[in-house]
Design a protein around this nucleic acid. Structure first.
Lengths: 113, 113
DNA sequence: TTAGAACATTCATATATCCTTATGTACCCC
DNA sequence: GGGGTACATAAGGATATATGAATGTTCTAA
C-alpha cells in the first residue's frame, strides 16, 4: 500500500464527513441544482453553502457550471452516491448490532462481582 | 430522509476519516490483530493506537476480544471494507479526472482576456 | 504478592474545522 | 453606467480533534 494512500483516502473521507456537505450531496443525488436551490433544500446560509460547495469542488466531488446569473452544481462521479449508500448500510447495521448488544445487556445483565 | 440521518452518517464518515484509523483498518482487513501487532503494522505509539482503537470501538467499527494478556481487534462488518475500497476507487477516478483537467489546461490554456 | 508485559485512560496543548458577519465579484436588465 | 440578484471569499472567534506524556488497569508468571 502506497505511503500517501491512507492520507489521500482520509482526505476524501474527511471531505464527505460533514453533515452539511452530506445534506448538499443528498440534495444533488437526483439532479444538478443552483446554489439558491441548494440553500433552500438544506436550510443553511448562502455563505456557508458556498463554502462547503467550494470544499467539495476543490476535492473533485462536485463540479460547477455557470448559466447566466446562476451556478449549477452536480456530483462528478456516481460512485460517490454508491459509497454514500454503502456507508448508510454500514451505519444502519452497526446501529442495529449496537441495540442488540444493549438488549443482551438488559436481558442478561453483566454480573459485577 | 430522517432528520438525524445526515448527522449519523457524517459521524460514521468522521470515524473513518482519519489517516491513522485508516491505517488500522488497513492492517485489520485480512485478519484480527493484537494491539501490539497493530502498533507494529502502523508505526504509531501504543497510547495513540489505543486512543484510535477506542474511537473505532465506540462507533462499532471494530470489536475487541481479550485473550489472556492481549486484546485482539477485528472489523465488525465486512461492508466497512467494501466502503473503504469504493472510496478508494472514487478517489483514484477523481484524481485521474483532475489530472486530465490539468492536461486540458496545459494544452488549451484559458484565455484571460 | 511482586514484577513485568500488554493495553487503556487522562490531561494539556497544538492544530484544524466550522460558522457568522462583512465584503467582493459576476452577471442581467433598465 | 447603475441597481439588483446570485454567488464567492475573507476575517474572526468558537468548537472540535489529534497527539504526546504521564499514569492506570489487567493479566501472567514466578
Amino acid at each position: 500500500m502506497d505511503q500517501d494512500f491512507y492520507c489521500l483516502h482520509s482526505e476524501m473521507c474527511k471531505t464527505l464527513a460533514n453533515e452539511k456537505r452530506q445534506r448538499i450531496l443528498g440534495a444533488l443525488r437526483t439532479s444538478e441544482l443552483s446554489v439558491s436551490r441548494i440553500v433552500e433544500a438544506t436550510g443553511m446560509s448562502q455563505a456557508n453553502a458556498s463554502q462547503h460547495l467550494s470544499i467539495l469542488r476543490s476535492k473533485g466531488v462536485v463540479k460547477a457550471r455557470r448559466e447566466g446569473n446562476k451556478v449549477f452544481y452536480s456530483i462528478t462521479n456516481p460512485k460517490i452516491i454508491q459509497a454514500f449508500d454503502l456507508i448508510s448500510e454500514v451505519m444502519q447495521e452497526v446501529l442495529a448490532d449496537q441495540s442488540h448488544m444493549i438488549d443482551d445487556v438488559i436481558e442478561h445483565p453483566i454480573d459485577p462481582t
